[in-house]
């Protein structure tokens, strides 16, 4: 099953709607609730990142019997130092993002804790792809 959602820059009101839709799909597929939670917490953090830090992008989910592969692909500006961004407490979030209850530098570390495989590829000026895989069984 392939699902795809558009993420719009700065659209904080709808931040989480892709994660919400994927959560509902996984529940309909009777995926274990603990696994559903790990998937949606990771995806939600990544979705908020794309809305808060990037010029919009796309969220995709590919679900098969054994795993879910999620991709959050944004249109830039890119992350200059991924190792720095992966460290808890590091953040470049705006005051607006902090007012939403995010921006404490916990997003990428939270994602890492919840997925089985994480790959972050970024090119400054081009964009970032966050690829997350979670085993469903």
């Amino acid at each position: 099953m392939h699902l795809e959602y558009t993420v719009i820059e700065g659209d904080f009101v709808n931040a989480g709607s892709a994660s919400s839709a994927i959560k509902k799909t996984l529940k309909q597929l009777n995926v274990n609730p603990s696994i559903v939670k790990r998937v949606v917490v990771a995806l939600y953090e990544a979705e908020v990142n794309a809305i808060a830090h990037a010029y919009g992008g796309v969220v995709t989910a590919d679900i098969d019997a054994g795993k879910i592969l999620l991709r959050v692909i944004d249109k830039g500006p890119g992350i200059p130092d991924i190792d720095w961004a992966m460290q808890e407490g590091n953040s470049t979030a705006s005051p607006e993002v902090r007012n939403m209850g995010f921006g404490a530098g916990m997003g990428l570390p939270n994602i890492k804790k919840n997925v089985d495989r994480l790959n972050v590829q970024s090119t400054v000026g081009v964009g970032t792809t966050v690829e997350m895989e979670v085993n469903l069984s």
Partner: peptide, 15 residues
């Protein structure tokens, strides 16, 4: 004390 749409969304994602 955070009262935004993201509070509800966060609750939804976090069960």
């Amino acid at each position: 004390g955070l009262c935004t749409m993201q509070t509800i969304r966060t609750a939804e994602m976090g069960n």
